[in-house]
Design a protein around this nucleic acid. Structure first.
Lengths: 159, 159
DNA sequence: TATTGTTATACTCTATAACTATA
DNA sequence: TATAGTTATAGAGTATAACAATA
C-alpha cells in the first residue's frame, strides 16, 4: 500500500487515541446521516421506521419496536409523526384484529427512492479512488471492532 | 461529479453497501458510548461538557456552547443537570462579572479518571491482535471518509 | 392469560425568543 | 450596542405504568 513506515520510537498504535478517532468518526457519520434525513423531512428514528418498512414490507408496530429496539409506546409516537407528515399509513391487520400494519404511502416510497439514490451518489464520491483492497480492509476492520464492541457491551469482557 | 468509470466487471466494491456498513458501525459505536456513559451517570451531551472541562480546564458556558455546537440555552440546561448530579460547579468569572466558569468537582474529576481508564482497557481489547499496519490504515480510512463527509455536508459536492 | 396498541406522565435534549446584568 | 446567562415556551425521542380490545 502506501508505505507509511512509522519507524518513530513509539511506532506502535496508541489504542486509546485510536478509540477516540473511532468516536469522532462515529459522531461525524451521525451528523451526516441526520443532516441528510432532515433535508428530506425525516429524523433518524423516523427514518429507521420508514427504512424498515421499505426493506421488509408492511409490519406491525410491535415488529418495528423489536427491530429498532425501543418500546411499543415509542413506535406509536414515531408512527403518529410519520402519519401526520404523510410518509406512512396504518391499515388493519388482515388476521389479527388487535394489530395494525404500517405501510408506506406514495410519499414514503418516494422518499426512500430519493434517499437510496442519494446514498448511491454519495457513496461513489466517499470511496472514490480507494483501492479495492483498502475498502475491503476498512469494512473488515469495522466488522471486527463492531463485534468486539458487542462483547464489551454484553459484559463478555470485563467492564 | 468526478467520472468514476468503474470498468471492472464487479470485482469492485459495492459502495452503497459499504456506506450501509459505515452507518451500522457508527450506530454500534454510538450505542457503546451511550451505554458506557449511562453506567457512570452521564448522558452523551453531559459527558461532552464534562470531557471538555476535563481537557481544557474551567470554561464559560459560552465557550462550551461553541465547542459542542449547541445553543447557550442548552448549555444552561446541561450544566444545571450536571450541577444537580454533582459533577460540575459554577464559579464566578474573575474578570467578567457577566460570565460563569464551569469547573469539575471531585466527583467530576473522579468520573473522567474512571472513563479514561475504562477506554484504555477497552481499546486495548478492541484492537488486540491487529497488525499495526491494519490499525494505521483503519484510522487513515476513517479520516479520509470523514473528510469527504464534511465536503458532502457543506455542499462542496452535489447533494 | 398474553399480546397489541393506546393514554397518561415524566425526563432529556434541542431550538427560538425575550429578558437581565454586565461589558 | 454587544455579550453572558437566564426564563419562557415548544417539539422530538425515550421510558414506565395502567388500560382497552383481542388472541
Amino acid at each position: 500500500m502506501n508505505g507509511i513506515h512509522n519507524t518513530s520510537p513509539e511506532a506502535c498504535s496508541d489504542f486509546p487515541a485510536v478509540l477516540e478517532r473511532v468516536f469522532a468518526f462515529a459522531t461525524s457519520v451521525q451528523h451526516y446521516m441526520e443532516a441528510g434525513l432532515t433535508a428530506h423531512g425525516l429524523s433518524r428514528p423516523r427514518a429507521s421506521v420508514v427504512w424498515l418498512v421499505h426493506r421488509n414490507g408492511p409490519q406491525t408496530q410491535r415488529a418495528l419496536a423489536r427491530a429498532i429496539g425501543v418500546t411499543a409506546r415509542n413506535v406509536t409516537a414515531l408512527v403518529d409523526g410519520l402519519e401526520q407528515s404523510g410518509f406512512v399509513r396504518r391499515v388493519a391487520h388482515p388476521e389479527d384484529r388487535r394489530a395494525l400494519l404500517v405501510q408506506l404511502t406514495d410519499q414514503g416510497r418516494s422518499v426512500t427512492a430519493r434517499l437510496a439514490a442519494e446514498y448511491e451518489r454519495h457513496s461513489a464520491y466517499l470511496f472514490a479512488g480507494l483501492p479495492d483492497e483498502q475498502v475491503r480492509q476498512f469494512v473488515a476492520s469495522m466488522d471486527l471492532v463492531m463485534g468486539r464492541l458487542a462483547q464489551v457491551a454484553t459484559g463478555t469482557v470485563d467492564r
